[in-house]
Design a protein around this nucleic acid. Sequence first.
DNA 1: GCCAACGTTGGC
DNA 2: GCCAACGTTGGC
Length: 134
Amino acid sequence: MNYWLMKSEPFKYSWEQLLKDKKTSWDGVRNFQAANNLRAMEKGDRAFFYHSNEGKEIVGIVEIVKTAYLDPSDETGKFVMVDVKPVEAVKNSVTLAQIKSQKSLQNMALLKQSRLSVSPVTKAEWAYICKLAA
DNA sequence: GCCAACGTTGGC
DNA sequence: GCCAACGTTGGC
């Protein structure tokens, strides 16, 4: 099982919206690196749902329910999307400031490549953040 | 195939 | 709203 972090601007697509929808297609990715991460996802993988811009915090956990397939909103036919469903909200949202202040989280892709909207999370990072969120 | 110009993302 | 970082595009 692999772990990921997926960013969304809350006013574009929020955690609350996902809870209402029960499931969503993660479309609109137009970055090759992010798309490669989407392709690497397997059914059952977990991902943190992160609110960028507004909030800047991890608010929930999602599960990949469908692996990468062509994003119909992409006219070039190069980019893919996956389907995700909410697993649970985190008890305490983990803010970017918190992540930055943790020594063991300094190497997170989230910090190193702040513009990458879909990034991998190591097992250790996942466990650490889950502890912060509990 | 290099690199300048440009566009976008996202933190502050 | 600004600006830094960085990915992408297009001319050469």
